[in-house]
Design a binder for these strands. Structure first.
Lengths: 228, 228
DNA sequence: TAGATTGTTAATCGATTAACAATC
DNA sequence: TAGATTGTTAATCGATTAACAATC
């Protein structure tokens, strides 16, 4: 596609600085992780080539990726570790202070509620929703367990933006729809089904544990096969 | 790279039927999941075009992907659901009956031990390893909790092939190395660090929960940004 | 200034899609 | 046989890598 040379064009470019591909976005958290490590090692600067060796990617790719978001580096010097970490963190919305609820308190749900990861990302854990009456009214890791029946109204009132979904497959879609109606904007989905395409306007990240395990099994088998 | 036309070439081709790309492999579990769904709906046959509509991919891609492993379909008919499900299941090693151990009994480790997913894939859960003396000697979901100090010897003796790693970051690498020495062939890694490149000869599948969460946060922020 | 290293454009590579001949 | 749909080759597209001019 050739750039049409009308005046508006310049404006358009400014707002969304050209669409960033999904491949690049998927790599951002990894950059963030490695920069965090460098920070812990008290490194102040790093070049794309040194980082590339650490991360086992090409230096070209690092420079190309980072440049999607603007010039974070400095010619002849490299990248300032703290600054770059900070910038990527901002891109990732690590400092947005989202409000989150959990849906489903099985083993997995329980462990996610108890995890410190969300706070570390500045996410507030407001409540857990469950259908089991034996659990409603209790607290888990200091978070109140509420009745799923109240979920939609409650989330709308509290302006919840993020939900962590760990319910059985059958309940996943109805739950997601209720969350969508309540104005929730993102779902981190641990239920073993896909919601992606069925709920327009909702950002969904599917954590398919079993897909991941199957992929591992495939690679293990393939490797054995090689020796045969 | 041009194929060198020596006699050996033919033989080489036969054994690994041409390398299958990582992109294709990553898609296999998803095909398996959708076929499982069709099976539950008692569908006997499906065409690539109908499946493509369901899965929101192109029919071309489906046919191309499946053909990496041989002709599973039939011209003019499509694919037999049960047969295809079975075949992909075999590819994924769903029926290999691997022996697995768990390492680390934090919240996440606990929920993984308690999950029924592994049995469903025909994987045997043999033991959990922990350093906390208060937990050693107990059982979780019927699985004995053993002392991590015994891990290497124990795994070698029992010919463990798969380990599920859910330990703090610092312990991840030493654990993985011990497992490698014990002859374990694959690690499903839930610790927040990468092992990939440091342990040759071991298949590793990293489940980076926090990377996944960060990616979701990025997309949520981006979407809000669009409206601005 | 000279050396280093980025930002960015051009070349390469691989993956996806389209097209169609083979065949059930 | 005619219709449908795969298997497979060719065309397109996008992502990665290489190269180098800009510049700190």
């Amino acid at each position: 596609m050739k750039p049409v040379d009308c005046e508006n064009n310049r404006e358009k470019r400014a707002a969304p600085p050209r669409a960033v591909s999904a491949a690049v976005i998927k790599r951002l958290p990894r950059y963030h992780r490695y920069l965090g490590e460098l920070l812990r090692e008290d490194r102040t600067r790093i070049s794309s080539s040194e980082l590339s060796r650490r991360m086992c990617v090409t230096a070209s790719q690092i420079r190309q990726d980072l440049n999607c978001f603007g010039g974070f580096g400095q010619q002849g010097y490299g990248y300032n570790v703290r600054y770059l970490y900070q910038k990527i963190g901002e891109l990732l919305g690590a400092e947005e202070h989202y409000s989150a609820v959990f849906v489903g308190l099985g083993h997995l749900g329980h462990s996610l509620v108890s995890s410190a990861m969300l706070e570390r990302r500045g996410i507030r854990k407001l409540a857990v929703f469950e259908t089991n009456p034996a659990l409603i009214g209790t607290t888990v890791a200091g978070i109140p367990v509420l009745d799923s029946a109240e979920m939609e109204t409650w989330c709308r009132e509290k302006r919840v933006t993020l939900a962590i979904l760990a319910v059985p497959r059958e309940q996943a879609l109805p739950c997601a729809e209720a969350l969508s109606r309540a104005g929730v904007r993102g779902i981190w989905n641990f239920s073993d089904t896909e919601l992606d395409l069925r709920i327009p306007g909702m950002e969904i990240e599917n954590m398919h544990l079993s897909d991941s395990l199957l992929e591992l099994c495939y690679r293990m088998r393939r490797r054995t096969g090689e020796t045969t």
